[in-house]
Design a protein around this nucleic acid. Structure first.
Lengths: 147, 147
DNA sequence: TATTGTTATACTCTATAACTATA
DNA sequence: TATAGTTATAGAGTATAACAATA
């Protein structure tokens, strides 16, 4: 076995490895169900469903990515007919984003897969531990500085 | 403010957002010190320092990436003169990886920056909470399935 | 002038497949 | 035959800079 030195005691390292394993479980869950979706795409679809009509700028800001990064992501989702870019009637510069009916139906199925995935990754934890973990993660996020 | 729906209660979502914020803090810490390094590069350098002479295959396995993915990463680190690929005397197919003396010195400085970064992201947590958090993350990692 | 979305461009991470040198 | 490293290629995520349309 390799010597990992000081790495195992580092919070950042534990975070990165866990995130990677959880990502793999997410992907595996969808592949087994014959679907393809990333956690980022799922988050995006939920945001659009809950905030129908929002602009690409608002969505990019909520996701913490550049507006130019969002363009090909929306292109792909639109090509899959999960969402549409409507022209805004009030501001000709912006697009009003919305799920299609196909997108709404698909998202319901995606949500059930995510639920199964969440249940599995939290299966080693009690409900109280899961809440504690999420709370601690949020605290860490609050302490990290961006610049 | 946007409605994030069911997202805030999801462990995977908390993990992803925290990881993203911690990554940004890591990058900012290095930029302010006039250095450039990713968490992945740091982990790689620690692995090479603690396991001098290991092969690219062994390193790729330890990092959980494909051997072809490792090649350009090593190219870059070697171009920065932080590590070298020695020819193995016992097996002509493998490279024996090692830090250069520059790499060893640089890693000492990187480790002190990582320490400062770790201190900051854990600043909202007690020492006991930090240990709890790492333990819970390791449990989650153990429950995630890869395929 | 400022904002929104798009395009062009560039880098990094990731993988698969095929090639080479060696075992 | 099998393994280690490389190369070619491709897809996704990320960004900056410049541009057109609109405010």
């Amino acid at each position: 076995m390799l010597d990992r030195g000081l790495l195992p005691g580092l919070l950042g390292y534990a975070l990165r490895r866990t995130q990677s394993a959880v990502f793999a479980d997410f992907a595996a869950t969808f592949v087994r169900a014959g679907e393809a979706l990333t956690p980022g795409e799922f988050g995006l679809l939920v945001l659009v469903e809950r905030n129908t009509g929002l602009s690409q700028m608002a969505l990019a800001r909520a996701l913490g990515i550049d507006r130019s990064t969002l363009v090909p992501i929306l292109d792909r989702l639109q090509a899959r007919e999960l969402l549409v870019r409507h022209r805004s009637p009030t501001d000709g510069r912006t697009h009003a984003l919305a799920l299609t009916s196909t997108g709404t139906r698909a998202l319901a199925k995606f949500a059930s897969l995510v639920k199964a995935h969440e249940k599995r990754i939290a299966s080693g934890l009690s409900a109280a531990e899961t809440r504690t973990l999420i709370a601690l993660l949020d605290k860490v996020r609050g302490s990290a500085r961006s610049l």
